[in-house]
Simulated scan of single mutants.
Amino acid sequence: MTGIHKRHWPGDKDRPALALHCMMGNSASWGPIAGRLDGRIDLFAFDMPGHGRSGPWTGLPDGTDFHTAITRIAASFIHQPLDLIGHSLGATVALRIAVAAPEAVRSLTLIEPVLFAAAPDADQAARERNLAASLAKGEAEDAARQFIDVWGAQPFGDLPPAVRQTMTDQIHLVSATAETLSRDGARILRKGGLERIDAPVLIVAGADSPPVIHAIAEALASRLPDVGRAVVPDAGHMVSLTHPDQTAGLIALNLDRA
C-alpha cells in the first residue's frame, strides 16, 4: 500500500469531521456535501487504497485485510471526538470505529451501510456468488458490470470507457471485503457493541435501493440507543452523489443532535 491522498474542506475547528467514501468512489464525492454544509464542520476525507489518487492496494506484509487497513487509516485522523460520516463501504468503516471506540465519535451518519451480515438476504447472497464466479473465470469486466448495475448511479454500459476500465480494475476489492461485510469478520455486530454507541446516529437510505439496504438499516437501528432513520425519495444507493441537497440536510440534522 502506497501514499494515501487526503482532502480537507476547512470549517469550524471545534467540529472536526471525517467522511468515508464508497467502494469504487473517492473523496472528491464529498465536495458537494461539504459545500452545502458551508463550513459548519472541519471536514477531512481520503481516497481509500486503490481508489482516486491513492496508491494501489497490494496488500500488507502482515496480512492485514482491506477493510482493516481502511479502518486504521481512518482512525489516524481521530485526535478528539469527531463527527463521522460514511457512505456504503465507508459507512461500515465508520460503524466499526464507533463500536471499537464510542468515545471517539461525536455523531455518526451512516448512508446506505452495506453490512450484509446484519440482515442475511438471498438476493444479495446470489449476487455475491455470481460475482465470485465471474472473477474465478477471469471475467472481471462482467463482474464489474454486475456490481455497478446494482450499486452504481447509472448502468455500467452508460459509463465512459475509462471509467469502466477503472471499475474493472477495482472489482477485486469487492471480494476483498466480503469476509467483513457478509460474514462480519471484524465482529462489528458483536454482542453489546452497537449498544455502546451513545452518540446520535442517523441511518440514511435511498427509497429505491435494494431491499437488503432497508433490512440492514432496520437491524442496526433496533440495537442502537440513539438513532434516527431517513429515506430519500427517488434515490438509490448513490444517494449522497445524486441527491446532495437532501443528504447534506440530513447530515446537518444529525450534527445538530450532537
Results as ranks from 00 to 15, higher is better:
residue 1 M to D: 03
residue 2 T to C: 00
residue 4 I to W: 01
residue 5 H to W: 10
residue 6 K to T: 13
residue 9 W to Y: 12
residue 10 P to T: 14
residue 11 G to Y: 04
residue 13 K to L: 15
residue 14 D to T: 14
residue 14 D to M: 04
residue 15 R to P: 12
residue 21 H to R: 02
residue 21 H to V: 10
residue 23 M to T: 07
residue 24 M to I: 07
residue 27 S to C: 11
residue 32 P to G: 09
residue 32 P to A: 08
residue 33 I to M: 06
residue 34 A to S: 07
residue 35 G to K: 11
residue 39 G to T: 06
residue 40 R to P: 03
residue 45 A to F: 01
residue 46 F to W: 04
residue 48 M to E: 00
residue 49 P to S: 11
residue 49 P to Q: 09
residue 51 H to A: 12
residue 52 G to M: 05
residue 56 P to F: 02
residue 60 L to F: 12
residue 60 L to W: 11
residue 64 T to K: 05
residue 66 F to R: 08
residue 67 H to F: 12
residue 68 T to P: 07
residue 69 A to C: 11
residue 72 R to K: 15
residue 76 S to H: 04
residue 78 I to W: 01
residue 80 Q to G: 05
residue 81 P to Y: 04
residue 81 P to I: 02
residue 84 L to A: 00
residue 85 I to N: 00
residue 85 I to F: 01
residue 86 G to K: 00
residue 87 H to R: 03
residue 89 L to Q: 07
residue 89 L to K: 03
residue 89 L to I: 10
residue 90 G to Y: 00
residue 96 R to Y: 04
residue 96 R to L: 07
residue 97 I to E: 02
residue 98 A to C: 09
residue 99 V to A: 09
residue 100 A to E: 14
residue 100 A to K: 09
residue 100 A to W: 02
residue 102 P to W: 04
residue 102 P to I: 04
residue 106 R to V: 08
residue 108 L to I: 06
residue 110 L to C: 06
residue 112 E to D: 13
residue 115 L to K: 01
residue 115 L to I: 14
residue 121 D to H: 15
residue 121 D to C: 15
residue 125 A to G: 08
residue 129 R to K: 13
residue 131 L to I: 15
residue 131 L to Y: 01
residue 132 A to T: 14
residue 133 A to D: 13
residue 134 S to P: 00
residue 136 A to H: 05
residue 138 G to F: 05
residue 148 I to D: 06
residue 149 D to K: 09
residue 151 W to L: 14
residue 152 G to A: 10
residue 152 G to E: 07
residue 153 A to C: 02
residue 154 Q to W: 09
residue 157 G to H: 05
residue 159 L to K: 06
residue 160 P to C: 12
residue 160 P to G: 12
residue 161 P to F: 08
residue 165 Q to Y: 04
residue 165 Q to C: 00
residue 174 V to G: 10
residue 177 T to P: 05
residue 177 T to F: 01
residue 179 E to D: 14
residue 183 R to C: 05
residue 184 D to E: 08
residue 184 D to C: 10
residue 189 L to K: 06
residue 190 R to V: 13
residue 193 G to Y: 04
residue 203 I to H: 01
residue 205 A to K: 03
residue 206 G to A: 07
residue 209 S to C: 12
residue 216 I to G: 01
residue 218 E to K: 14
residue 226 D to K: 15
residue 227 V to Q: 02
residue 227 V to N: 02
residue 228 G to W: 02
residue 229 R to K: 15
residue 229 R to V: 14
residue 230 A to F: 09
residue 231 V to I: 15
residue 232 V to G: 03
residue 232 V to Q: 04
residue 232 V to P: 08
residue 234 D to L: 15
residue 236 G to C: 12
residue 237 H to W: 12
residue 240 S to R: 05
residue 243 H to S: 13
residue 248 A to V: 13
residue 248 A to M: 08
residue 250 L to G: 05
residue 250 L to Y: 08
residue 255 L to Y: 06
